[in-house]
């Protein structure tokens, strides 16, 4: 009985705070994406025209995002039936967009206007004892092109 109460309260806590954190995060991502819209990212390796004399520098951004308890349970239930695991979809989407934003911010600090050869790398960390994804790390990196005056 006591265990059930703990379980349910964790579930409710996870649901409430997880949702809050997620909507707040998405809002801030949209906001910052708008601000950093002028820094263009490409995943091709060739230099865009007009940037042959620019100087290039490696930039990167990473983020570790954790899943909440409610989603962990709901994803576990989803495993029984199969299909889309939207809980993890949004988690990884948030992580990717955040990592790209941090990379762009670093590029902005260096005065760059374009980032080429962007690569994204995902690693699930803290797999823990139970075989489940607790948190996911995304690292985005690329070569920032700083136009020479």
């Amino acid at each position: 009985m006591f265990n059930l109460i703990i379980f349910l309260s964790l579930l409710i806590l996870g649901y409430v705070f997880g949702r809050m954190a997620e909507s707040r995060h998405f809002k801030s991502i949209l906001n910052r994406e708008e601000q950093l819209r002028d820094i263009l990212t490409f995943n091709e390796r060739t230099l865009p025209p007009g940037y042959e004399q620019a100087s290039g520098e490696l930039v990167g951004g990473n983020v570790v995002i954790s899943i909440d308890y409610f989603k962990q349970i709901s994803a576990g239930l989803r495993n029984l039936f199969g299909g889309r695991v939207s809980a993890y979809e949004t988690l990884i989407e948030r992580a990717r967009r955040e990592a790209i934003l941090r990379m762009k911010q670093e590029a902005r600090l260096k005065g760059a206007s374009k980032i080429i050869n962007v690569r994204l790398e995902t690693a699930s960390i803290s797999k823990g004892g139970q075989d489940q994804i607790g948190s996911v790390e995304v690292y985005a990196y690329g070569t920032a092109l700083i136009p020479t005056p």
Binding site: L10, L13, G14, F17, G18, A21, E22, H25, N62, V63, V64, I65, S66, I67, D68, Y69, K71, Q72, E98, I125, S126, G134, S135, E137, Y139
Partner: peptide, 16 residues
């Protein structure tokens, strides 16, 4: 943090 969800800043810093 695994209960509430959100960014794990400690880990982010560590990995950076």
């Amino acid at each position: 943090k695994n209960i509430f969800g959100g960014e794990l800043t400690g880990y982010t810093e560590l990995l950076t």
